[in-house]
Design a protein around this nucleic acid. Structure first.
Lengths: 331, 331
DNA sequence: CATATCCCTGAAATCGATCCCATAGTGGTT
DNA sequence: AACCACTATGGGATCGATTTCAGGGATATG
């Protein structure tokens, strides 16, 4: 690989000049600039990002840690982050923690020193560990609140309220919540929103779980729901809801007619399921983009220590919800 | 952030000694080692990966570029690569090219100099561009053959042959192939395998497309299939097949009974669809792991220039295939 | 006691760039 | 002619580590 010195020698200028040609072309004389570019071209020279990072103290890279790439909620978020990062001339490095706190820590540790900023989506790590680790690395979290750390959170209140109203309007009197991972911030948030809405509209709420946010968990939940009875189910996320849908169909229960099911996230799977899944849309892409914007503010020294961007959610009604089989106490 | 000099000063040793404590602890005297570790601990020192990379000429990072993280085929591959990389003490950086050749080039360019090796999954980039870009960066490709570049390819022959045999045995006399992106190596490979198998078993083969490998393409394909008629369809991948399934159901056509559908990839969606999708399993995880192993060989100077690992595929029969509605010419 | 051997340590060069500072040269102004 | 302002360039320190090489000191050997 050619270095800046090689180019300088070939172009008959100093290293400084070569450097300038790439950083502030305007200040270099037309003549010298052309010679440098020609030399760089024939030598196939490109500035070493590593050396540049060392000297500058910035890498131009952003890191993103997600709990599970296979969860269809995250790809749109990742894509949005990548697009937004590119817009600010930064490259994005993504890592997957496999829903595992230890791996998450290891990943954060590996990344922290190689990126200018770290975006953590739905981190599971214990707060103390996390704080210790990101000491010195600008960090933005998505879907978790940590005092003093800028965050983007989606607020389930609106969506969950709409969901409860929707079910109440259809005549349901009680709701079963299929809980997500106990330590997940989103789970606590969603449960709380659901509780509040139910209290407000006089619906009974029961809970099953916790479940890992996977399709298989939903399948397992299906049997529990059938055993316990219940006409309306709200799942922690679409994946669980879809597993539930599959299992209910398998066991001869008609989704919507017999049991109404609502998911959360509105991943593309919700649309493709049959029946199409009624779900609370969570703006994943918007959250990712907002996180990058926050990060940019942080990096440019903005006073955003505890800033939090809140993004609303909304219910998307499709075909997995309907009036309960035997009219409940509507009147 | 504390530097090696800070630690050295605090521990009362030279920078060399500090460095050695982290690289070859055995050669440092017990006493000095303890002092250094203590100093490092209180200062919260960790060697700067950037400086280390510059000096060593290696970053300890691997890069992986995939065409679409949202395609459920890739997450298992990504996870496998990440796991395998970790096993070799390397961190993995993932980037998504959005099925876009230009973006892919830009990503490769951004990554190339910051990683020790690059793994390109199903690259769409034109061969010449690619070769120019990876000049000087050890590269392994997955699902594409490029003379002289080590590769891991999945061979559709076995799976496609089994698929054709399966359909033929059920009594189908012709197959419609829903093609993937024209320039995709996998598409050419799969079409070819299908052609050969059809010729061998005397089935007629027709083709629709090309389609982008998305659910929506499959939906669109559904109408084309219905218009043209045909009792058996093989799609480029599961996503297209699932879109097809959804559309056929929507239009009142019963999958399996009226039209048999076979996908390729065996992503987890194939299992969850209803009816569950018969599909050709492509070992994504194994491919990822194999790619890392190849990469490690390359990096350790092994003579693997043109090496190619081939991974077989197999048909997984589920519920989307059945005998054609009116018995075809079986006897 | 002199010398060889082995361990441990530090000095200094190096990786490839950036960037501050000094200066040579040019042109304009009085 | 003297001076100023300004532009383009080069020299050299620097980022934070690794690594080679040489040497000091302790121990063993003759």
């Amino acid at each position: 690989m050619a270095t800046i010195s090689d180019v300088a020698a070939r172009a008959g200028v100093s290293r400084s000049t070569v450097s300038r040609v790439f950083l502030q072309p305007q200040v270099v004389a037309e003549d010298a600039r052309r010679r440098v570019l020609a030399a760089a071209d024939t030598l196939g020279y490109e500035p070493s990002p590593v050396a540049r990072s060392l000297r500058r103290g910035r890498t131009g890279n952003l890191g993103l840690v997600v709990p599970d790439i296979a969860n269809p909620f995250f790809p749109p978020l990742i894509k949005a982050v990548q697009r937004q990062a590119r817009r600010h001339q930064m490259a994005l490095f993504v890592a997957d923690s496999d829903e595992h706190a230890d791996d998450e820590l290891a990943l954060v540790r590996a990344m922290a020193k190689q990126v200018d900023g770290l975006i953590l989506a739905s981190p599971r790590v214990a707060e103390a560990d996390l704080r210790a680790l990101i000491e010195g690395t600008p960090t933005v979290v998505i879907n978790r609140r940590l005092e003093g750390i800028p965050a983007v959170v989606t607020t389930p209140e609106q969506g969950m309220t709409q969901a409860v109203e929707h079910l109440a309007a259809l005549g349901h009197g009680e709701i079963v919540y299929l809980a997500g991972p106990e330590q997940a911030y989103s789970n606590q948030q969603r449960r709380q929103a659901l509780e509040n809405a139910c209290r407000l509209h006089g619906l009974r709420l029961s809970e099953l779980g916790p479940f890992e946010p996977h399709f298989e968990s939903g399948v397992r939940a299906g049997d529990l729901v059938l055993a316990q009875g219940g006409s309306a189910v709200v799942a922690y996320n679409d994946q669980i809801a879809l597993g539930l849908l599959a299992r209910l169909s398998e066991r001869g229960t008609r989704v919507a007619q017999d049991v109404s099911v609502i998911g959360v996230d509105d991943t593309w799977l919700a649309r493709m399921a049959s029946p199409a899944l009624t779900t609370v849309r969570v703006p994943a892409g918007a959250a990712g983009a907002a996180a990058v914007r926050l990060m940019v503010d942080v990096l440019s020294g903005g006073p955003v220590a505890g800033a939090a961007v809140e993004l609303a959610t909304e219910l998307i009604v499709r075909s997995s919800t309907a009036a309960p089989p035997r009219p409940a106490a509507t009147a």
